[in-house]
Write a protein that binds this DNA or RNA. Structure first.
Lengths: 257, 257
DNA sequence: TGACTCAACTGGCTTAAGCCAGTTCTACTG
DNA sequence: CAGTAGAACTGGCTTAAGCCAGTTGAGTCA
């Protein structure tokens, strides 16, 4: 009998595969509750532990999410917030709307951000090199923000600015004293953003990131290391974005040079 | 006593935290073998199952990798292959070197790629819309490739080309009959790449992707949906890259418009 | 010397049983 | 009727025990 082929793969994987197929077929709709672990165990002729294992696999894949005391649910895909390559475009600065707020509004969400901390620090070697400052003195200002869409933390942003630029600008205060925001200040200081360099990677979050971005299992983070370059080809600001991949995407619409 | 504070977090997480700290402190060097599960169980006063659980957490974070029969090892970070925004720049086409091969060579690796399949297919609705072709007929050619660095599969690439462009060009053959590659053909056909649009997301791999990219647990994938746009602002080719995040990064150095 | 066997290790996975902690709803109480 | 106690559910995690399957190296045999 073809039933007898003896699948040598672990039972927990086979259960996960079966459930995955059912979810992809739509037999369990997004948001729907799966049968309880105890019921699934009975159905598959396995012990609850093994079903738990199978569900963990699906959770890691980002397909389901378990809620303690309530059940296991098929994860609902969030629409992505798209951070675009045009996010620094002058057109936004004049309208007064940040691309982030626009994206949130599109989804009927309220975007906001919080300042977590501002500090004048000694940069590490790599950063010092990027910004062409000394790594022996407190030569940069670091600003730390979190962005929210409604109540969900969406990304964490760290900005480093050479002290030579930040000095006397009020960039040590939480409230940025310029109508065009932080980049308005840079322009006043003679740095017009001419190019950007974004280095993009993805990875699993650290435990820290899990807690401050409120991440569920199976959600990677996208890390963007952004450098602003002025009219002289000189970098004058570095920003790191750590974004939850289930709510964010990037979009680069750029000329071929 | 401060020992008595009673950490209420699960034992497996506490063990994972402890081991993570040791790894980050360098007490276990990259590539080093951790003590066996049975020894760790003894050390932490837990049962082997619980240690296994803790190690799975670290594996999911991409910190360690278990090898059946051999032991658990601290993962060695791979240098990243950087796919740049300039990867379509004419400068590469003339030198005959693809950015991918250059990056591999930098790392002393041999890059190569394989054609997995070529087919003339009916596009799905979304793709048809992007390429402005009909979704009722076999209006696109799909080419499927895998790229390797030495023996490691690094990314999988799927390219869709409107049949109206591919027709009569030999794009249905594995060997691209043009000295400047596939993009040379497009130029001959009157489509000069003027802009690109890359949509970037990250997520956990599907089981399929795990097997064909040979992924270990805790490695996300980066997905890039790339559209080439010609001198008239018209899209004429769509490519999807699925890249393993532990070996790949992206880099966009672009003007602010 | 070289090929092979096998013991002693490694992680992988499952069963079995149980306690704990959230959630939900029902039925009772004031 | 409002409020609440509690049963009956949910998943989370641990212990305990064992079999299985890769790996490695020591020792044996031809």
């Amino acid at each position: 009998m073809s039933d007898e082929v003896e699948d040598r793969r672990p039972l927990s994987r086979r259960i996960a595969d079966e459930l995955r197929k059912e979810i992809e077929d739509g037999r369990h709709a997004p948001g729907a509750k799966l049968p309880s672990q105890r019921k699934l165990a009975e159905r598959f002729g396995a012990v609850r532990n093994t079903v738990d294992e199978a569900l963990k696999i699906l959770a890691q894949e980002g397909l389901v999410i378990a809620e303690h005391g309530r059940g296991v649910f098929v994860r609902v895909k969030q629409p992505l917030i798209r951070l675009g390559s045009d996010r620094y475009s002058p057109k936004y600065r004049e309208s007064g709307l940040s691309p982030f707020l626009v994206e949130c509004a599109k989804q009927g969400k309220v975007g906001k951000f919080e300042v977590l901390g501002i500090e004048r620090i000694k940069p590490d070697k790599e950063l010092a090199e990027q910004l062409k400052v000394s790594d022996k003195t407190k030569s940069v200002v670091r600003r730390e923000n979190v962005f929210y869409a409604d109540a969900d933390p969406v990304y964490r942003v760290t900005t480093w600015i050479p002290w030579s630029i930040a000095q006397g600008t009020g960039l040590l205060q939480p409230e940025v004293p310029h109508q065009y925001g932080i980049h308005g200040i840079f322009e006043d200081k003679g740095h017009v953003m001419t190019r950007i360099n974004d280095e993009i990677t993805a990875r699993m979050p650290t435990p820290d990131e899990v807690s401050y971005l409120n991440l569920s299992p199976g959600v990677p983070v996208i890390e963007v290391m952004h450098t602003s370059i002025d009219q002289d080809g000189e970098p004058y600001e570095v920003t790191r974005f750590v974004m939850r991949a289930d709510m964010n995407g990037l979009s680069y619409n750029v000329p071929v040079e």
